[in-house]
Computed example of a mutant assay.
Amino acid sequence: MTILRAESLVNDGTALVIFGIAVQIATGHDGVGPGGIALDFLISYAGGIGVGLAAGWLSIRLRGVVRDTLLNNTVSLLTPFAAFLLAEEINASGVLAVVVAGLYISQAGSLLIAAQERIRVRAFWQLATFLLNGTLFVLVGLELRGAVNDLTSYPLRTAVVDALLVAAAVIGTRLVWLNTTPYLIRALDRRPQQRARRIGFRGRQPNAWAGFRGAVSLAAALAIPSGVPGRDLIIVVTFGVILVTLVVQGLTLPAVLRWARLPTDNSETEMAYAESRAVEAALQLLPGEAERLAVDPEITALVRSEVEERRTELTEAEPAPDGLNRREQYRALRLALISEKRRVVVHLRDERRIDDLVLRRFETVLDAEELRLGADTADAGE
């Protein structure tokens, strides 16, 4: 998933840069030649990267200063628009600027953005992304009929045949590319770290088969100037390619994933490793910080016992007679207690012994604890 997401972001930005140059050539733009194309590509790419880094850096600094949740969400929302518009002002790639800004924030923001603000902003973007994606594909469907009705330069049958041919070319090119270039890289790069990243033929196929087309392709087609010959055909063909890739590749991707026999996801092991290292670092830091903050020895001992209890729970994960290891037992018991806490405070609210605002504040604490334990939706519902 990480590879597909990163590849999609960078591919879209690069493709739109090349697309913009192609439109200039198609519209007879003066001064377009090999040198001009190379210069335009350099400006678009380098300028987009530069603006993206600047926008990401400024966004993190502002969000580190702003403590109001609404203002923090506003800064987060305005960041991609600011990066895009600034890049377009210098004739650079706005899409690449947004991509780079997002990558910079994801890498540098963990230590500079407050935890509470990060949780709230992440929840906001999860909802916004879901709604935007849904809206974009609804618009694709709504625009299709109008595109077909506006097709005048070629018969509809020709457009359908062309769409199928272009879809086959798009899918086939990706399959060929991702199943040939790895062998070229292997021949040229013999470093041990490169060998460690190699995957077999089966493992490459989900990536090769996941080249869906969508809103970016449609936006590019609709951005073609009206004076370009065959614009109506290009739009209909683009719709056809989107439908073919989404329906054909989308419906068959689960079968490809099963056939690929991908290795077992080791994220849980990595999570346990990361938490173990973090706990060890906390225990090493504890004495010095307790002395610096002049903490009461009893409080220091209490904190140490809690952290050491967590370390023990992480390191002793052998299976128990009932099939649950110590980590799972710990998690199940804590979740049961959280559920009971939630039931009690809701009951207190219903009896008018506490205010709704108090309930909401306590719910926030319980939700954070539940998230730390890795509770899924089913656990939360229980």
Rank of each mutant, 00 (worst) to 15 (best):
P229G: 07
T315Q: 10
R277H: 13
P297G: 14
R277D: 13
A220S: 14
R277P: 01
E309R: 15
L218A: 03
E308S: 09
V307R: 03
G211Q: 10
A219F: 05
L251R: 10
Y330M: 06
I235R: 00
P287Q: 12
E340M: 11
G250R: 05
A210S: 13
S305W: 06
D322R: 14
E328P: 00
A290Q: 09
L218C: 02
T264N: 13
L222H: 10
R277E: 12
V307N: 05
W259E: 04
P321N: 09
E289T: 14
V279R: 02
G227Q: 12
I224L: 15
V307S: 07
T315F: 05
V237A: 01
K341T: 08
P263N: 11
P229N: 07
G240H: 01
D265G: 01
N325W: 12
T264A: 15
I338L: 14
I234E: 00
D296A: 12
V236W: 00
G250E: 07
F239Q: 02
N325P: 11
D322H: 12
D296V: 05
Q249P: 01
V247S: 10
E289P: 06
P254L: 05
I234P: 00
V279N: 14
S276F: 14
S276V: 06
S217D: 12
L222A: 13
S267C: 02
A215T: 12
L337S: 08
S305V: 04
D232S: 10
R310M: 09
T300K: 09
Q329W: 13
E308K: 07
A332S: 05
T300H: 07
V241H: 02
